[in-house]
């Protein structure tokens, strides 16, 4: 019985049950029942509306996430390996880390207009400092003994990068990716809400104006499912692969 209680399905069922109980108690449009939400989810999916907007948002997510990870890794490695530059730019990083996401988004729209470019740059600018800080940690912690070994055995640049440096940075990159994906998609919704005419954020804004809570919850469920899939099907296996040599 105890093991059954600990099963994840049980906790999900309990959650649905509570939701059902609360919504049938309140009987309010502010909290629709699970059945209503799933009906909405089905309707929106069948009409093609949800897949379209979800795909728009995912495209932005992948593009900005990729850009932020790539640029952030390069800058992070560079700063981690050059102590003087790192000390010089440290203040900049702290400033960028502390600028609220909303400010960057508004500024990007003001500077670049209500364009796709502005939207993507806003997300990248928000995520970039986080990646830089995490990867910089990794680059600072590179094992000197192993680098010397690679030098003594004439590994050369490419071999050293691939077999000595990359495996040490990989856990940091995965760490940055896992926190990054959760952060990025939340920012993207705000970006879309403020200045795009498609995507999840835009749809949520519409539902908000029409007071369609079922719609909001339906889109939320769809998106959470997609992000969870990315996490369990891509990031977690990568993480496990990186740790396979550990005792």
């Amino acid at each position: 019985m105890r093991s059954a209680l600990q099963h994840p399905i049980f906790s999900s069922l309990l959650f649905l049950l509570l939701w059902q109980g609360l919504s049938s108690l309140l009987v309010s449009p502010a909290l629709p029942t699970p059945a209503e939400v799933f009906h909405e989810l089905y309707g929106e999916t069948a009409s093609g509306q949800l897949p379209f907007h979800l795909w728009k948002t995912l495209q932005r997510l992948l593009l900005s996430f990729g850009l932020a990870m790539g640029l952030g890794s390069l800058i992070g490695i560079f700063l981690g390996r050059h102590e003087k530059l790192d000390r010089f730019f440290d203040n900049w990083l702290v400033i960028f880390l502390n600028i609220p996401a909303l400010v960057t988004i508004i500024l990007c729209y003001v500077w670049f207009g209500l364009t796709e470019l502005a939207a993507i740059s806003a997300v990248v600018a928000n995520k970039l400092p986080n990646v830089v800080v995490t990867v910089r940690e990794g680059a600072r912690a590179l094992d000197r003994d192993l680098l010397e070994m690679a030098l003594a055995y004439r590994f050369g640049r490419w071999k050293t990068l691939r077999h000595v440096i990359w495996p040490q940075l990989f856990p940091y990159l995965i760490g940055a990716a896992r926190t990054g994906i959760a952060l990025t998609w939340k920012i993207i919704l705000v970006v879309e809400l403020l200045g795009r005419s498609n995507g999840m954020g835009y749809q949520l804004h519409l539902f908000f104006q029409m007071f369609n809570v079922a719609g909001i919850l339906a889109y939320t469920i769809a998106f959470v499912l997609v992000i969870q899939c990315i996490e369990t099907l891509i990031l977690k296996p990568l993480d496990r692969h990186a740790k396979r040599w550990r005792r």
Binding site: D145, L146, E148, M149, Y153, H163, P167, W245, R246
Partner: peptide, 12 residues
């Protein structure tokens, strides 16, 4: 070839 005090093998 250089054999260091510690083995310095790549753990991965």
């Amino acid at each position: 070839a250089y054999m260091f005090q510690n083995p310095r093998l790549l753990p991965w």
